[in-house]
Amino acid sequence: MNAEAAVFYVLAAITVGSAAVVVLARSLIYSAFALLFTFVGVAGLYLLLGADFLAATQLLIYVGGILVLLLFGVMLTHKLYDLDLRSEVTQFLPGVIVSIGLFAVLALTAWRTDWAGGDGRAPAATTREIGQLFMGRYLLPFEAASILLLVALMGAAMIVRRKRSA
């Protein structure tokens, strides 16, 4: 087993294990912090795949932004003295059956398909080329995404604004 395989298995174990904690933990805070390790593990897998820009983006946006937002959501939807922050589980058995079935189908498909692939060598540093693609061929989707972000954030602010009772 070479070094790449070892790193891959460690990262995959971190990712999948902490994702299982996210789903199965009794406490919301445990779930949120396990989600941190899932995001970091996925960022490591991106690095292993040669996607350096995407790994940095994953850390900045998911860990720095989305996870903090989710923690805000946890804190704001519970009373301050409500310390245990439980999250109940419903319909556990059907959920387990459905997700195990999904995993079986996906894994079988992924494993048994004969993927026509390239050579699988790592590309060189990707940031420059991604930037050129964004500013060149994919300029219109890029602008659309920026407008979507603006609209979504303004809409979120509108939704949570307290209505003045008049």
Binding site: V23, S87, V89, Q91, L102
Partner: peptide
């Protein structure tokens, strides 16, 4: 699959 499990079973 884990994400779907969380989606289905959490309240």
């Amino acid at each position: 699959a884990l994400g779907v499990l969380g989606l289905l079973t959490r309240r």
